[in-house]
Design a protein around this nucleic acid. Structure first.
Lengths: 191, 191
DNA sequence: GTGATTTCTTAACCAAAGTCAATCACCCGA
DNA sequence: TCGGGTGATTGACTTTGGTTAAGAAATCAC
């Protein structure tokens, strides 16, 4: 499996050979095409994954308009983890913005691994904890910053995102209308 | 330990006697007084806890004004879990709004338990997963609802909160100014 | 390359919430 | 009981972002 993904898990909890082999062998490599839906609203998400290549967005449809919750790139965690954990139907879509590929681990296989290997159970704890940190970061960000501040932060920390993603999707991710983002950009450029 | 708190952990992962005894014995009962700070900004949070009685708020100071992130009541989980996990200084205060008590488990003790008992490690995973679900709920709520909708939801789902907490703190929790909340209330009452 | 579609920008107008300031209502303690 | 303090409300005004509509720019398909 891709070294990047191994690095992710190693940073959480290095696994001895036996565990790693068992763990790794449960991943399947999947490919996707631009526009493809990896998960539809209404279905429970029964996998987690890690992107090898390509760009993916995580969004929901609210009152007829699309609200983007996240963009994912190579190396990123890929799942509706909430639906994955709760078993409830997803309120989000997962959709490819480009062609690409990812490594998929099905829920059932992961639960078996948790039961078989305490160290993988611990890895699961550390993964949940890491994801908790990520989502609280985003929450904090939304609570404490204005759209303009969020855009500036995106520019400085994640400029790759701005280059690869249409602006109206970025606007949605920032929680504003495309027109507002356009205004913000204009405001910033004339300073 | 309080039955409510046992019920919380039982709902995640029932523990056999040995594990439960070891787990329970690591909790300490703590009391607090109105206004007391259970955690100050700048310190790492080195415990998790569960409230036995009383009301607590979780807030940060941003540009000189207090922003309330959460209110906690009897039975609720109590920690800056983010700081607890990352070891980084807390950007939030934890402060008592009333007199009360809670059961505290120190980080060091929990980490030892994780190492000693795989089942408690699993309990930790399920706890992290549960907390993940709670924070994504809040995130969704903030992203997809207007302040007015959030207030109405609070009324229907958490009216206890509205009775026990000063309005200006509720406003802060909703992400608006006290004046705006006052106007929203007026708007709603004349419908 | 050309036409069509999609994306981005701009403008005018509107609604919601913020700010500032004044006032009201209530509680509590001396 | 009176006065002070806290919290809630109201009003005037400002700011910000949403909406609608139009047009410009970029991209795509043939």
């Amino acid at each position: 499996m891709k070294t990047r993904i191994k690095a992710f898990f190693d940073s959480l909890q290095p696994l001895p050979d036996t565990e790693w082999k068992a763990f790794e062998s449960c991943f399947e490599r999947m490919t996707f095409q631009k526009e493809e839906e990896l998960l539809s609203e209404g279905r429970a998400c029964d996998f987690i994954g890690f992107i090898e290549s390509g760009v993916i967005r995580f969004f929901q449809v609210k009152d007829g308009t699309e609200k983007v919750t996240a963009f994912w790139f190579s190396g990123d965690f890929l799942s509706n983890y909430r639906s994955f954990l709760s078993g409830q139907a997803s309120d989000h879509y997962i959709q490819a913005l480009t062609d690409g590929s990812y490594y998929r681990l099905k829920r059932e296989a992961l639960l078996k691994l948790y039961d078989q290997f305490p160290l993988i159970d611990r890895l699961g704890r550390l993964m949940a904890e890491r994801l908790y940190l990520m989502v609280t970061n985003r929450l904090d960000n939304l609570l404490s910053q204005t759209p303009e501040e969020r855009y500036m932060q995106l520019q400085s920390k994640n400029s790759k995102l701005l280059q690869e993603i249409p602006q109206y999707m970025v606007a949605s991710y920032l929680g504003i209308s495309p027109e507002s983002l356009s205004r913000i950009r204009k405001r910033l450029s004339t300073r």
